[in-house]
């Protein structure tokens, strides 16, 4: 049989989120610690240019640069862009201008936000100053944003040893991205069949192998698998391991057996947990069947069927 008319597209949220722990190295450590202390540091290149924010390596010569200087908290906008709809994570929640600002005493510009009443109040060349965050931890967000500031540039870069008490050596950079995952035609059909506690694979029209779960393509022939084939429910343990270490986020008592199971009619094994038998009695060739629990999308585990073990030659190609 061939695939019926396409079922409704499955979708689910996929959140990718982690608090990354970043070590800084000496230059970035000095800069971010300085921000905590309301001091802005730059770094001087061999030809005397002052880079703010300070880079660790000269972008022209690639040489390590470590000569720190202090620059002003006031500066000049070198370009800007009005952001009428701030996005999550951005420095201000109300409309603001993105700006590149050359701080007084610096030769390069720093990117940040400018709090201004509207785009008509912003222009290239305008004078601005740092608005410090009330609570500062040693991070680029210790600069809350820039704000307009009418005063001539006076400050020059002055040498700084970069030393502060209790220097910040690392930051925690939390990052969350939200995706909407959709598994595609082939897996959607498989997932929908699971709801009826049926395991439906797909056969390659070229090599005739049955793929479970189907992935849309026969990976050896590079063609779509279209013919749906119900497999199982019983199958054979082709190989396994005994898990003695509790994995994070898995509420399964150890030890337990994690096995490759070739369902009857499938041409490769899928993975599952073996239950209903002491862990140390599981063996290659054991015949098993799925055990479903209420509300579970996948079988909770597989248990012995009581049939005689399969012969090694019968499954050794399916491991």
């Amino acid at each position: 049989m061939t695939a019926a008319s396409p079922p409704e597209v499955l979708r689910a949220p996929l959140v990718v989120e982690f608090p990354f722990t970043r070590s800084l190295g000496p230059v970035q450590s000095a800069f971010l610690t300085g921000l905590r202390e309301r001091v802005v540091l730059g770094v001087k290149t061999a030809d005397g240019k002052v880079m703010v924010p300070p880079v660790e390596y000269d972008p022209v010569t690639a040489e390590e640069i470590r000569e720190l200087v202090e620059v002003g908290a006031t500066g000049t906008v070198t370009t800007w862009a009005w952001n009428g709809s701030p996005r999550p994570g951005q420095p201000l929640g109300t409309p603001f201008a993105w700006v590149l600002v050359r701080l007084d005493g610096a030769d390069t510009a720093i990117l940040h936000a400018l709090d201004a009443p509207g785009p008509e109040a912003v222009r290239t060349g305008m004078r601005v100053r740092i608005r410090w965050a009330g609570e500062r931890t040693g991070a680029i967000t210790d600069i809350a944003c820039f704000e307009p500031h009418d005063a001539e540039a006076t400050e020059q870069a002055t040498p700084h040893d970069g030393q502060f008490a209790d220097a910040v050596t690392g930051i925690v950079a939390a990052a969350r991205l939200d995706y909407t995952y959709s598994p595609g035609r082939s897996q959607t059909a498989y997932i929908n069949a699971l709801a009826d506690r049926r395991t439906v694979g797909e056969r390659c029209p070229s090599c005739h192998k049955v793929y479970v779960p189907p992935r849309g393509a026969c990976p050896t022939c590079g063609v779509a698998t279209t013919d749906q084939v119900e497999v199982g429910p019983a199958g054979t343990v082709t190989t396994y391991c005994i898990v003695n270490i509790k994995a994070k986020n898995l509420d399964i008592e150890v030890p337990y057996v994690y096995a490759h199971i070739a369902l009857d009619g499938a041409d490769l094994a899928l993975h599952g947990r073996i239950g209903g038998i002491p862990y140390d009695q599981v063996r290659m060739g054991l015949r098993v069947e799925p055990v479903w629990t209420e509300g579970g999308r996948h079988p909770d585990h597989y248990r012995p069927t009581g049939e005689p073990d399969a012969d090694y030659d019968a499954y050794k190609e399916l491991i």
Partner: peptide, 20 residues
């Protein structure tokens, strides 16, 4: 990841700075 990514400046914003 130290100076820029924590501010979440998006691709349109950066291109707009270039355009200006």
């Amino acid at each position: 990841p130290y100076y820029l990514a924590p501010l979440w400046p998006d691709s349109v914003a950066l291109a707009a700075l270039q355009a200006q």
